[in-house]
Amino acid sequence: MTTKLTIGYFYKDQLNLYGDNGNVEILTMRALRRNIYVDIVHIDTDLKINSKAMSALDIVFMGGGPDSGQKEVYKDLLKNKGDYLNEYIQKGGVGLFICGAYQLLGHYYKADDGTFIEGLGIYDMYTQHFGGRKARCVGNVVARLNSDFLSDPVFSEVNFLGGKIVGFCNHGGRSYLADDMAPLAYVERGYGNNGEDDTEGILFKNTLGTYFHGPLLSRNAHIADYLISKSLGMDSLPSIDNSLVIPAYTASFKYK
């Protein structure tokens, strides 16, 4: 029997600011190379969803967007899709949410001029933009994965790279996690959620939120393999050629 990976890709056309679609491309290629068939379900503003449709998904992905793109999807997400997405995540569905999408799943986003954008409140986190009072968080980042994540046997099994993630962030809003929320990683170099408390992203049930934008998975293939393995409930993954992935990951630690 062939294995199939179904990826729910939210708002591809509106939310793809920094090559975020690369993540879906990478998940697809890494699955196909293991003879896992991939089905991508495009979840756009004109597509209606329900609990059943959501439960057919193995991974949900949503990227970051420019302000205009986020405004467009924001209403649809809150009104038509939020409840189903919440249900999917609370039940332990696997997800990857980047930058603007990561923000929208928190309680709110408060702009410097006082504009208040309500989020889905799926996890206990809020975002605030301090305008000119605090610098935009831009640059390469190196972060150490949360020990809970490292000790997940699914991750230990597929982890061929190491205990760190590398990426690039570029965000104006700063996010703050509640005390009982677990970050995805702890920053060693660069900005993370806010440049203040060393946290980066969130690890909420089986959902990952992060400010590492764009093709996060290109440099962090161990996260890609984790998402595939976790979502399909596989004990292990067949090995594939990683001869370009490993040096690209290693080189990332030196980028200034």
Partner: peptide, 18 residues
Amino acid sequence: NDNIPDGKDVSWIYDIDP
């Protein structure tokens, strides 16, 4: 390259149509 005039962020290469 990722020198100053190029920008430090090369994420955009994933927006090249595969």
